[in-house]
Simulated assay, not measured.
Amino acid sequence: MNSERTTDVERGWLEMAGEYYLGEFVNRFRHGSLVMRSPDSDVVQIPTVIFGTVNGVIGVVASLLHEQFIFLEKLQSSLRKVIKGVGGLSHEQWRRS
């Protein structure tokens, strides 16, 4: 939020820090998790933000460890070689647009 704006309405607006195309209008963000975690668990606690859209979609934004990202990127690349895109649409082209 920008507290330097002149009116109360403008001060309530959020400044854009990044964008994700979801095909939905997000109307809620909340800190939290989609699963319950035990406080004495050995699993690393990764901060997550849950979002809800006007059409009822629930999603989560979370950080990944670099090793997890590399693994998932390799998995995606391997799947792309085996599974053809719907309607002949290339996954790489779709991700670039």
Rank of each mutant, 00 (worst) to 15 (best):
F51W: 03
I83Y: 09
P39V: 13
D8G: 15
L64D: 01
V86I: 04
R28L: 00
I70Q: 14
V26D: 02
F69Y: 07
K84T: 02
W13D: 13
G32R: 02
F29A: 08
V86T: 05
L72V: 08
S33D: 12
R5A: 15
L72E: 12
P47L: 09
V60I: 14
V82Y: 06
G59E: 04
V49N: 05
G59N: 08
K74S: 04
R37P: 03
H31W: 08
R30W: 00
A62C: 05
V9P: 00
K74R: 11
Q45N: 09
L89H: 06
D42A: 12
H91C: 06
V82K: 13
R96A: 10
G32T: 01
T48C: 12
D42H: 13
I83N: 06
P47H: 12
G88W: 02
T48M: 07
E92N: 07
Q76N: 09
Q68I: 04
K81W: 05
F51I: 06
N27D: 14
S97N: 02
E19A: 13
G52Q: 04
K84H: 05
I83K: 12
Q45D: 11
E92V: 08
E67S: 13
V49C: 10
V35E: 12
G32W: 01
G88N: 03
V49A: 05
G85C: 04
F71P: 08
D42G: 10
Q76S: 13
G88F: 01
K81T: 10
L72G: 11
T6N: 09
H31T: 13
G32Y: 02
V43M: 11
V43T: 12
G52E: 13
L65G: 15
G23F: 03
E4P: 00
K81S: 10
